[in-house]
């Protein structure tokens, strides 16, 4: 199994507060990797460091051996690492299809001149973007919603649309920040189906999740963060029995 993403001793400080302290982990190509931990443990901070929204205070993050920390978000997307957001960040006033087509930006090249003159490449790219966007919408189960405004979709559909939009950037690694938060059990089941489909399509998944049952069912390996430190890593069953994890989630033992 080849390593796709390595995080080495990443520290992120906000003023005097350490949100992440020397966190290290590795994600292998083709696996579903879960990142769990109590609220405020630093999961989203780590995501933001990995995807270029934050600069790291110390440490190294590599994608396929190439350092990506402190790169611009669009450069990281260009290398094949896309993400979604915990509090959905769609372009609410654009249609669902347009949202997904924005995701094609990193994989298209048409410039001003091409766009104005309708160069052959421009037209081909535009056709291709539209087609891919449509098939991605079908892939996540939003086949008939292309013309709806993103902001008018139901909550669950917005989550799906965000995934379709991220997929449009052709990622090898897709980071999903609490993708089933606020969903009912039915929707959760459908989402874990989608995660499996994504893995089968050859995309490595990095998942922040609270729902332990879902994590245990879907993830190949799990890391647990608490107060900005990694306290456990391994296959789900092993992690679930780890005393440090139990303590982090349930508080210290009484006796």
């Amino acid at each position: 199994m080849t390593t796709l993403l390595t995080v080495e001793n990443v520290t992120k400080r906000f003023g005097g507060l350490s949100a992440l302290e020397a966190v290290s982990l590795t994600v292998n190509a083709g696996e579903v990797y879960g990142l769990i931990g109590p609220n405020g443990a630093g999961k989203t901070t780590l995501f933001n460091c990995m995807t270029g929204l934050y600069t790291v205070s110390a440490g190294v993050i590599r994608l396929d051996g190439v350092p990506i920390h402190n790169r611009k978000p669009h450069q990281i997307v260009g290398r094949g690492f896309a993400r979604t957001f915990q509090n959905i960040r769609l372009f609410a006033n654009m249609t669902a299809l347009e949202n997904v087509m924005v995701g094609r930006h990193a994989r298209t090249r048409t410039g001003v001149l091409g766009a104005v003159l309708h160069s052959r490449r421009c037209l081909a790219e535009e056709r291709d973007s539209r087609q891919r966007a449509k098939s991605l919408m079908a892939f996540v189960g939003l086949k008939d919603r292309s013309r709806s405004l993103a902001g008018h979709l139901s909550y669950g559909d917005q989550r799906r649309l965000e995934i379709a939009r991220a997929l449009a950037t052709e990622p090898r690694l897709l980071a999903l920040d609490e993708p089933v938060a606020g969903m009912n059990p039915n929707e959760r089941r459908e989402m874990s189906e989608l995660f499996r489909k994504l893995r089968d399509a050859g995309i490595t998944l990095l998942l922040i999740e609270h729902d332990v049952k879902l994590v245990m069912g879907v993830c190949d390996r799990v890391a647990v963060l608490d107060y900005g430190k990694k306290i456990a890593e391994g296959v789900p069953d092993e992690v679930r029995r780890n005393p440090a994890v139990i303590e982090a989630y349930l508080g210290g033992a009484v006796s």
Binding site: T51, G52, P73, A82, F85, V102, G103, R107
Partner: peptide
């Protein structure tokens, strides 16, 4: 932010 995260 979302635009940047989509590769723009």
């Amino acid at each position: 932010v979302a635009a940047a995260a989509m590769g723009i």
